[in-house]
Design a protein around this nucleic acid. Structure first.
Lengths: 170, 170
DNA sequence: CGCACTCAGTTGAGCGCTCAACTACGTACA
DNA sequence: TGTACGTAGTTGAGCGCTCAACTGAGTGCG
């Protein structure tokens, strides 16, 4: 193991600014959605992705990938959303292991009601505070980071838990 | 209520890239810390702030501000950390309402052991993927957002819950 | 002083998330 | 065809966080 490369002063300023901004921002957005629309942000994301999908429905694993969610998280979340009547699960006709989650009309209405307030909050706290250049910079930075975390070695690391337990002795 | 100003295409790309990057990144960092050092990132932050404070100790509310945490969250977290023997709470001599949280030697040792792996992960997934210009851009963007969310009206909104319940009739 | 108000911090219920284990179906290959 | 492995999704225990309510100490003012 090599000697630790600590962050330089400017790297640390950047990391902390990003960390604090994100903590405050996500907390604020979650609070707004929970207060005005009784859902956490993760649920909102699920509704958005489904609303954009053809037939307003998707396979569970596609939906998990689209929302950057673990399968377990999605499974719990969809169960709760189904209890509310916002989603519905049906079996996949071509693969009996599969489930297809579909947005109901009630769920779509809930999304339509939640969206304006949420978008306003995203603007107020983030987008409208940035210059157009900064908006572009943020997109580039985000894309680079996503690409890195989606690379084969990282996906493997995320699945490692499963791999470990599936390899009892060697 | 004015008509909703939806995000433009480029704003939406930026917001989603940032959102996805942050979701993946924070999940990865949390997993790494939990796996290698048995603590969530929020606990790590508490240890870091205390380790940097004079006497390795701070008032609870200062610590809450420094970590961008709610008082409730901090209170729960400090209780858990105290159970592990990493922190210790003592009464404030000048204000009997106050508590001072101090890092123990065991807690400091836990931080020293966790830090290299965590910093390496921050580098691997974020800092080392960015150009020096992007590091600077990220700092500027983060600072602007933090400033906005720390402004009077936003602090008020965060405290509104307390204010509401403290005003039974009006 | 006495009373109302504010501030510091804690508490417990409820909920979403993680982890690990599990079921059940699909696939490859001898 | 059988067996071993991979894939899709679910489940429950445990834990951290939020919200609201609470205790108890400081503060302002008649």
């Amino acid at each position: 193991m090599a000697k630790t490369r600590w962050l330089t002063a400017s790297e640390q300023r950047a990391w902390r600014a990003y960390l604090e901004a994100t903590t405050l921002l996500f907390d604020a957005l979650d609070r707004q959605l929970q207060r005005d629309s009784t859902m956490p942000h993760a649920y909102y994301e699920i509704l958005v992705r489904l609303s954009e999908a053809p037939g307003r429905s998707m396979r569970m694993s596609e939906l998990a990938d689209a929302t950057r969610s673990s399968r377990s998280r999605l499974s719990h979340a969809v169960a709760r959303l189904e209890e509310r009547g916002w989603l519905q699960r049906v079996e996949c006709p071509t693969d009996k292991r599969g489930q297809i989650a579909g947005l109901t009309d009630v769920g779509f209405a809930a999304l339509e009601e939640a969206a304006p307030g949420h978008v306003a909050a995203v603007r107020r706290h983030l987008i409208d505070r940035l210059t157009p250049q900064q908006v572009t910079q943020l997109e580039r930075i985000g894309s680079v980071v996503v690409a890195g975390l989606e690379s084969p070695e990282c996906r493997a690391a995320r699945a490692a838990q499963a791999a470990d337990s599936a390899t009892p002795v060697a």
